[in-house]
Design a protein around this nucleic acid. Structure first.
Length: 317
DNA sequence: AACACATCCTGACTGC
DNA sequence: TGCAGTCAGGATGTGT
């Protein structure tokens, strides 16, 4: 399940190969992976062909690549600044391959590019459940006028630095964003009576956290997933954010979590954070803190893993 | 308005 | 062996 650390691992893997690469051709194997490109697959191909990819940027679980369009399509796009936007959804993968490499099962879209050094590379979008997508979208100014997302230092001063795809503009900054505003998030928590995990997963409150890292951060701070967000003390909220940041950063350092076959880096390799998990997927195993069995409860059509002893529901927390 | 829940989607796995 | 049923959960849309 790709969350921020997995998407960041993919971003970091794509960036060296795709920055300043030129799109030579596009192969669409399943049009459903382009469902978010409302103008349709033919428009997708026409607009993207010949474009130069300027960077690979991420906010939360969204990735985008600002584009310098080919001259032949620039007029049709008018003054619009465009980016190729990707979301991995539940099962999306982005691999970098050579054309001669064996085909990857469940490949939906292949974008052939030439790197600035003249090397031919295939960007392959794989997606079992097709919750993910690729689309070309207009870049708009960020609400706060600060950078749209994380890329690398070369973003400084570039025309796309303070822009974000319109389809990702409603997403809050993620905890690893240098402009992440903890106080803003706290004020949103204070107004919500929903369970704290639901709020952690709300990408408009803070982005990048999914089911795995939510369970891990709640275990680390001994909070019950259904603890109403507005009952958190300042100390609890602060501790929660500290843990979310720590866990996300640790997972990035390990190349993400490969809990099942649904997450791989751009070379098809697994991440190593799975060995550090304390709650997610640990059903019936002893809690690493108190020894009581970790419980899994059905919750919002998914699973919530927690220690019934360490993580109790309280009046205030 | 805030909140809760349904929906999309398919391969891998389980059990009979 | 084959088939039906179950499971995984990102984001979004709908209903209360």
């Amino acid at each position: 399940m790709p969350e921020l650390p997995e998407v960041e691992t993919v971003r970091a893997g794509l960036a060296p190969a795709l920055t300043n690469a030129r799109v030579l051709g596009i192969q669409i194997l399943d049009e459903r992976s382009l469902k978010r490109h409302l103008a349709g697959p033919r428009d997708f191909v026409r607009t993207l062909t010949g474009a130069k990819i300027l960077s690979v940027v991420r906010r939360g679980k969204f990735l985008w690549m600002p584009l310098e369009l080919d001259e032949s399509v620039r007029a049709a796009a008018g003054d619009k600044k465009l980016a190729l936007v990707g979301h991995l959804g539940m099962s999306g993968q982005m691999f970098l391959r050579k054309q001669s490499d064996p085909e990857d099962k469940l490949t939906r879209v292949v974008i052939s590019v030439e790197t600035p050094r003249g090397k031919a590379v295939e960007f392959r979008f794989i997606d079992q459940r097709i919750f993910g997508s690729l689309a070309i979208d207009e870049l708009v100014a960020t609400e706060d006028g600060k950078p749209g997302g994380f890329s690398n230092s070369s973003a400084a001063g570039k025309w796309w630095q303070n822009l974000i795809p319109s389809t990702a503009a409603h997403i809050a900054r993620d905890p690893l964003d240098e402009n992440f505003d903890s106080e803003l998030v706290r004020s949103k928590f204070a107004k919500k009576h929903s369970g704290i995990k639901r709020v952690l997963l709300d990408q408009q409150v803070l982005s990048g956290v999914g089911n795995i890292y939510a369970d891990e951060a709640l275990w680390a701070t001994k909070l019950h997933y259904d603890q109403p967000a507005d009952t958190l003390s300042r100390a609890s909220f602060d501790a929660l954010i500290v843990e979310v940041k720590r866990i996300l950063a640790a997972a990035v350092a390990e190349g993400g979590t490969s809990f099942d076959e649904q997450y791989k880096n751009v070379n098809g390799e697994s991440g190593y954070f799975e060995v550090s998990l304390n709650a997610y997927g640990m059903t019936d195993r002893p809690c690493n803190r108190c020894g009581r069995a970790i419980r899994r409860e059905s919750w919002m059509n998914r699973g919530s893993h927690f220690c019934p002893n360490c993580q109790k529901l309280r009046k205030r927390a």
